[in-house]
Nucleic acid binder design. Structure first.
Length: 279
DNA sequence: ATGACCACAACATGTGGA
């Protein structure tokens, strides 16, 4: 199974690039973030013509997540247990949830497409929301990896955190003063990993960014950030055979500001890509 | 080379992005 994650920054603007890339890279499952539309606005036909079915969670023009898959998408969820909500100007537990998470099971793999809140700035209510959201995700993850360790489980998405100093090449983003690199955000990321998942891309692709701001020649200057990750449980991680960050997708006409990250899995009983052995 | 923000709703400009 070839499974990938990509913050597409509007699927309606990007559908041709996204589907072309999926077909070209033989992608079986894609977790998308920032689709920026409701399900009825999603360009479903172009995915179906390429052989993919979809699970879509979008409430308005903001955020939005989806999963595309060649195999049936089962047990779809549009939030994890304890996921906080947010509404500007409204405090407390009654804030509505946003479209930032969709989970499903595909070919026995339990996958999540996640768009972690941005945080906006240190001290903003959105920053507290981000930390709370990540803490709830860690609790949920610990529950899943503990209760069902045999099920390959993965958190895929735009985490909006650069966990290590070398993950930030953008001089505008200042250690200690900006979101994405503040110690509490990094601690929240490590707490998530301690809940039973590990970055399955970094050991195979030690260097490289996944995001470059559209402004100020960030991409030509290679002033980007590594903030998009695939975090897999032990059962998921031990099935990974390769990983890649598709930097070329930041080039060309109308790119997203993020690029896809992809891993290949060799699952038990997954022999579709292997030659038949006789005798 | 990859080039000096982009997408959305709405129709001017504000919000959000990281």
């Amino acid at each position: 199974m070839r499974i990938a994650s990509w913050n597409v920054n509007s699927i309606r603007t990007r559908v041709d690039r996204v589907v072309d890339w999926m077909v070209r890279e033989d992608v079986d499952v894609l977790a998308m973030q920032e689709i920026k539309c409701k399900p009825e606005q999603f360009p479903i036909e172009q995915f179906e013509e390429a052989g993919y079915e979809l699970a879509i969670h979008g409430l308005n023009q903001w955020n939005g997540v989806a999963i595309a898959s060649r195999s049936p998408i089962e047990q779809v969820e549009t939030s994890f247990a304890g996921m906080p909500g947010f509404l500007k100007g409204l405090e407390g537990p009654d804030q509505p949830q946003e479209a930032r998470a969709i989970g499903a099971t595909v070919d026995g793999v339990h996958v999540w497409s996640l768009y972690v809140p941005n945080g906006r700035s240190l001290g903003d209510p959105h920053y507290t929301y981000k930390l709370d959201w990540l803490a709830a995700l860690a609790d949920y993850t610990r529950g899943q990896t503990t209760a069902r360790p045999e099920v390959p489980f993965a958190l895929m998405g735009d985490f909006n955190i650069a966990p290590f100093d070398e993950d930030n090449g953008d001089p505008v983003v200042v250690e200690g003063l900006s979101t994405h690199v503040s110690p509490p955000e990094r601690q929240a990321f490590f707490t998530l990993e301690n809940a039973g998942v590990t970055d399955v891309v970094r050991p195979r692709v030690p260097e490289g960014y996944t995001y470059w701001d559209y402004k100020q020649l960030k991409f030509p200057r290679n002033e980007g950030m590594r903030i998009d990750f695939i975090l897999g449980s032990a059962a998921f991680a031990e099935a990974v055979t390769s990983a890649s960050i598709h930097r070329n997708e930041r080039k060309g006409v109308a790119p997203s500001d993020h690029v896809p990250v992809l891993v290949e899995l060799a699952l038990g009983g997954d022999d579709e890509d292997l030659p038949m052995i006789f005798g």
